[in-house]
Each structure stands twice: as C-alpha cells, then as structure tokens.
C-alpha cells in the first residue's frame, strides 16, 4: 500500500511504551511481583510490534479511563 498507517494512532489503541531495564526493575520491586504475574501481551501483537517490544520486555500502557481519566497498566511481553 502507498502509505502505511500507524496502529498506535487508532482511537481504540492506547499509548504503548517499552520500559527500560531500570524501570522494569523498579516496577517489579514496587509491586512486589514477578513479571510472569502480570497480564500479558503477545510479541506479534500489532501494537506491541509498533512500539518495538521483544519477548521478556514490559510494556507500559497509558489507558484513557472514563472513571479515572488516565490509568497506567503494564503487560509482560510473551512469545507468540
């Protein structure tokens, strides 16, 4: 196709961002959990691919919420 569209631009898709090594460590410490206890996202997920996530990463998702305004959510990237 002539112009490739951006998955992350769609209004249904919230902002995805890959966490750095330090941020990941800090996050797991703050929640006192292991990465495998988080909700997951597959590495071939269109939005995960668009933000360049690799299996083992943690993706930070900034959701828009009708009740809270802005909510941070995290997903652990799994092979798939």
């Amino acid at each position: 196709m002539t112009e490739k569209w951006d998955v992350l631009g769609h209004e249904l898709v919230p902002d995805h961002k890959v966490l750095s090594k330090e941020e990941t460590k800090e996050l797991l410490k703050r929640f006192k959990i292991g990465a495998f206890q988080m909700p997951r996202i597959r590495s071939n997920d269109p939005a995960a691919m668009a933000c360049g996530a690799k299996p083992g990463d943690i993706v930070k998702i900034t959701r828009k919420s009708p009740t809270a305004g802005k909510v941070l959510a995290y997903r652990y990237v799994i092979e798939g």
Binding site: W5, H10, E11, L12, V13, I41, D45, P46, A47, R75
Partner: peptide, 20 residues
C-alpha cells in the same frame, strides 16, 4: 485509519492488538 471501527472483536485483536 484512526477512527474506523468494526464490532468484530477478534478482527480488532488481529489488526489493532489486545489493548484495542
């Protein structure tokens, strides 16, 4: 591309991802 939607949730997962 930013506003077009479908009511098929599987299609949305396939093309826009799990969060969508």
């Amino acid at each position: 591309q930013d506003r077009t939607v479908t009511n098929d949730i599987y299609e949305i997962e396939q093309t826009l991802g799990i969060e969508a």
